[in-house]
């Protein structure tokens, strides 16, 4: 079990990470999620032993890691762009940790690992000849070869294009869960975090603002800023929030302490046909603009007493000025 206990890291007196408490159970995959510059890379480097702590302690199974150099910690670190050793072949890269420990029968282990990441037959290639996704797979195999106590991933998928990212994410998730590797990953990309992690730690301005299971954090962001960072399009408060809250189909949750409501872009479904239906639930507004995207028709709607909100169209493309009735999808609304 990896534990960060009130960890702070300062650079020349400027705090990069303040008072962070994080706990990672054995076999768990935890994602530290935050915007760039929030201190997440610092957190990862501190765990790896690459940054000295200004305060607090990092422990593994209760043993303090202060003074333990990086190479004795047994945490393999995988960078955003792989950082393969350019002068070594793929096999030599993967077998690097094995060679350091003079493990016998290296060639077979390396072949197994390349198999695991779907790169059988790549052993003799040089890193320069690989695509971004292949490099990242080799980096993963290289990290796994070290049989690390924990795996540290620094934005493992961010350097890849969207299609590749999705495919590698599911592979990575499978490999991590099947091998039961304790993993700490940092990322600024919420999709990457949701795809890989069991639990999320949201970091902002060097402080942990929220942690919990991926579903929990997603459903109940702790504050407006976190909600916006997690992909909610708008956060309402005051009278508009109360009106939206009142329009929710059932009171499945009590209002949050801040009395705010966060809406995803698809939280409101607009329907022009029911706008004048007597007694119908929901809000009524006038379409400001409509734009067709591959997934849906996205609208901007001026809602009476609430203001301008995003919505998707249930059917057809309404013209600007059309009045529509908006139904709320409770799963896409968060109460703060």
């Amino acid at each position: 079990m990896l534990e960060l206990d009130a960890v702070s890291v300062h650079y020349d007196g400027v705090p990069a990470l303040s008072d962070a408490d994080v706990r990672i159970e054995d076999g768990e995959v935890v994602a530290v999620l935050g915007p760039s510059g929030c201190g997440k890379s610092t957190l990862l480097r501190a765990v790896a032993g690459l940054e000295p702590l200004s305060a607090g302690r990092i422990t593994w199974d209760g043993a303090d890691l202060a003074g333990v150099p990086t190479h004795r910690r047994g945490f393999a670190l995988m960078f955003q762009d792989g950082q393969l050793f350019a002068h070594l072949s793929v096999a030599a890269n993967v077998g690097y940790a094995l060679r350091l420990r003079r493990v016998p029968d290296r060639a077979r282990r390396v072949a197994d690992l390349l198999d695991l990441v779907g790169l059988a037959g790549y052993a003799d290639r040089l890193p320069g000849t690989l695509s971004g996704g292949e490099r990242q797979r080799v980096a993963l195999a290289r990290s796994m070869a070290a049989a690390p106590r924990a795996l540290l991933l620094d934005e493992p998928l961010s350097a890849l294009d969207a299609a590749l990212r999705e495919r590698l994410a599911s592979d990575l998730r499978r490999i991590l869960t099947e091998s039961g590797t304790t993993t700490l990953l940092v990322t600024h990309d919420q999709e990457e975090a949701f795809a890989l992690a069991d639990r999320l730690v949201v970091l902002r301005g060097g402080r942990v603002v929220q942690q919990g299971s991926a579903r929990e954090v997603w459903a109940r962001p702790v504050d407006a800023e976190t909600a916006l960072f997690l992909g909610y399009a708008r956060v309402l408060d005051g009278e508009p929030a109360r009106r939206v809250l009142a329009a929710l189909p059932q009171r499945q949750a009590s209002p949050g302490t801040a009395g705010q409501v966060a809406l995803r872009r698809s939280a409101l479904v607009a329907d022009a046909t029911t706008v004048d239906a007597p007694g119908a639930a929901g809000l009524v507004g006038a379409v400001v603009s409509a734009r067709a995207t591959p997934d849906a028709v996205r609208l901007v709607v001026d809602v009476e007493g609430v203001g301008v909100l995003d919505a998707v169209s249930a059917a057809g493309v309404p013209a600007p000025g059309d009045r529509v009735r908006l139904r709320l999808d409770a799963a896409r609304v968060a109460l703060l």
Partner: peptide, 9 residues
């Protein structure tokens, strides 16, 4: 790369 190597032991 040097940090990655150190993390690999």
């Amino acid at each position: 790369p040097a940090e990655a190597a150190a993390a690999l032991g």
